[in-house]
Simulated assay, not measured.
Amino acid sequence: MARENETILVIDDEPYIRELLQYNLEKEGYAVISAASGEEGLDLARRNHPALILLDLMLPGIDGIDVCRRLKREARTAKIPIIMATAKSEDTDIVIGLEIGADDYVTKPFSPNVICARIRSVLRRNEQKIHPNTEEDFIRIHDITIDPKRHQVHCGSRVADLSVTEFSILEFLARNAGWVFSRNQIIGAVKGDSYPVTERAVDVQILGLRKKLEEYGAYIETVRGVGYRMREEDSGDSGALPIRRAIQSS
């Protein structure tokens, strides 16, 4: 699967290793640029700002440890994750690299599958550091917890297995608890105004959503002649129901 804007910089003085890595990484959907020396690698990192650097420690001229040190000292390149690759197995090389900011290491000879797995892992960790989940990222109502980033819903201690559309409807209603939305408004909010779907399809999705939420499904209420709403917490049944006007019916 293609990975938009994820370019891997390979810095290694051995041509066959660069070719092997380029072949396997491009198969995984990454764009690859490569350098045969530390000096060239520094230049490419500064000019291209890759998503990740695979860095050999044993390089002619500026060695890998010094390349790593320089990149981590420069504000523009300091946050680029680095995986060290080395033929050495001494702990001191690994410790030095990790202490100056490398994110992971592999020892040669290595399997391309292992390299790809390590790259995915480091990129995933790096993404979580840049965009960590905070309390504000979660939606909590009626003991339902919605995690938009992980696409997970917890009903009490149980995980509800929702489809993409069911999740989107639940998130939309929960974010706007107490407001009543027509079926067309719900379609527009979760699919876009021009999405070709009938109002009946919304009823089917709501039915499936309620079933998967089990007892928590009762908090999604049908308002006759209008549509649906997520009941507000502690709102009771008194008073007129507000009708959301911010999203126009199609």
Rank of each mutant, 00 (worst) to 15 (best):
P148G: 03
P148S: 13
P148M: 13
P148E: 13
K149S: 05
K149M: 12
R150M: 15
Q152F: 01
Q152R: 13
V153S: 05
V153T: 12
H154I: 03
G156A: 11
G156T: 09
G156F: 06
S157D: 14
S157Q: 12
S157N: 00
S157R: 11
R158F: 12
A160D: 01
D161K: 15
D161R: 15
L162M: 01
L162T: 04
V164H: 12
V164K: 06
V164W: 04
T165A: 10
T165I: 10
E166R: 08
E166W: 04
F167V: 10
S168P: 01
S168L: 06
F172T: 07
F172A: 02
F172Y: 03
L173E: 03
L173Y: 03
L173D: 05
A174C: 11
R175E: 04
R175K: 14
R175D: 09
A177Q: 11
A177D: 09
G178L: 06
W179E: 07
V180L: 04
V180R: 04
V180P: 00
V180M: 02
V180F: 02
V180A: 06
F181R: 00
F181G: 00
S182C: 01
S182W: 03
S182K: 00
S182G: 09
N184I: 01
N184V: 02
Q185L: 01
Q185P: 06
I186P: 14
I186E: 03
I187Y: 13
I187Q: 00
I187F: 09
G188H: 03
G188E: 02
A189F: 00
A189P: 09
V190C: 14
V190N: 08
V190I: 13
V190W: 01
V190P: 03
K191F: 05
G192Y: 00
G192Q: 11
G192R: 11
G192E: 10
D193I: 05
D193W: 07
S194G: 08
S194N: 02
S194D: 10
